[in-house]
Design a protein around this nucleic acid. Structure first.
Lengths: 246, 246
DNA sequence: CGCAGGATTGACTGTTGTCAAGCTTGGTGG
DNA sequence: CCACCAAGCTTGACAACAGTCAATCCTGCG
């Protein structure tokens, strides 16, 4: 199951279909979208805060993030995007970017012109709803992350993040039974859950010591899903998947 | 300028109009929406996590919040909603509520049936876009709050929150030149910015001691807007207001 | 084989949390 | 009109989780 083998429309259909039932006509409309494919190295910028993009980005392979910097230069990663996700779908209706988007790992992305998406939305109201719904699920994830960062300790937050990635990657068929790729450094993980890189190291060690996960290099294996879910206070409700996954 | 004197449609037009230009036909469509008005005492529930509402809520007066609880019972308030806002607009496209909504102060709210909103969206595509846009601005605020909670210290977060409320209330005409109502306790403020109630007290004292704000009872007066903005690292870009307010 | 980036470890610091006690204040009822 | 109560705010002492700094250790890659 290699990400590189997916066509853009297949992935998008799979992703939107995981949130919303699509009929054949709608699938065809998605297939008809012109997509310009590009490859990115790690840490390459996709859009910057302040930009006024005329296109949306669709992740085809790899991992991208949405982030902002505080005045002291501290970075908060507000969202992670896996294949099938559209990290800047919001730009379809918000002129100016309020945050930046960059690749974390080597990525393949597709660009779709706003004009083409708008035309598709006008012709297929249900697809417009599906895209709206995708942005609403993003917002739901923000809410869950706010709960995590605001109220849970580092150990719980880390467990929660691993659970979320497992479920999201499985939803697009990019995780094995208990293992998935996590192509990011501990420093980047730190920027996601709002703790220091040193503390990420200690937290992962604690999770390993407790026998919940195994993490070597950029691969994570979940050894005890039930215990990890409990440790992370993880309930997939907020992901709004059609079948109550996990 | 009394909130109680606004009609539901006037407020909604004002709010959507602050994000998106509306023509007369669209304004009329908003006026034609049937709205059922209700009054709420403080701390009353509007919708609960897990519910499947058939209507959306529109805040007409007072302050509501979106929140979740961690397993240990700690509450994180993920969003505040002022008159003109629709706290559960997402429920139009996400069946199940992933968080709860409650009043913080005494409130007047209007309920609008999903069916009526959907009909309006089908007939007026630009209004559908305006509503979509409103949910996207909510998401943008979540991103900014994630940055705050994840990377900024308590003092900065508090300053930032006060700046945001000032700008948002001014956008709907509910703030005086330098003063606005903040009808919530320090304990509730603590749940918003993710610190303890004791620390809220200390943080507000520091802001007062530095001559940035004055806060008596439930009223906040900003004594030095420029310094407060700087202290809070506040840039209103993320609110996506049409005229670059503040 | 050596280098560079990332991960780990230890020692120390600091912001924020917790607990518990006092202090205001506004509302209520005698 | 005043006393009293409850809720909320303030204060101080202490604890704890997480941050910082710096040294060391891996490990993949050239």
């Amino acid at each position: 199951m290699n990400a590189e083998t997916y066509l853009p429309d297949t992935l998008m259909i799979r992703k939107l279909g995981s949130l919303f039932p699509l009929d054949e006509e709608e699938r065809q409309a998605l297939r008809d979208l012109p997509v310009q494919v590009a490859r990115l190295k790690p840490d390459q910028s996709v859009v910057q805060i302040g930009d006024r993009p005329r296109q949306c980005c669709l992740v085809l392979a790899g991992l991208t993030c949405v982030y902002k910097l505080s005045y002291e230069g501290r970075r908060q990663i507000m969202a992670l995007h896996v294949p099938g996700d559209m990290p800047d779908l919001q730009s379809l209706h918000l002129e100016v970017m309020d945050s930046s988007i960059a690749s974390l790992s080597p990525c393949t992305v597709g660009f779709i012109q706003h004009a083409d998406l708008r035309r598709m939305c006008e012709r297929h109201l249900r697809l417009a709803s599906a895209l709206w719904r995708e942005t609403l699920v993003d917002a739901s994830i923000y809410r869950e992350w706010l709960l995590s960062i605001g109220q849970r300790d580092a150990y719980t937050r880390m467990a929660h993040l691993l659970c979320e990635l497992m479920v999201r990657l499985k939803a697009v068929g990019l995780a094995e039974e208990d293992t998935f790729d996590l192509p990011m450094s501990q420093h980047e993980l730190a920027d996601v859950i709002g703790i220091s890189a040193v503390h990420v190291s200690r937290t992962l060690q604690a999770l390993r010591a407790d026998g919940l996960v195994q993490s070597r290099k950029m691969k994570v294996t979940i050894l005890d899903w039930e215990k990890l879910k409990q440790a992370g206070e993880f309930d997939p409700l907020y992901l709004h998947l059609r079948r109550g996954e996990a």
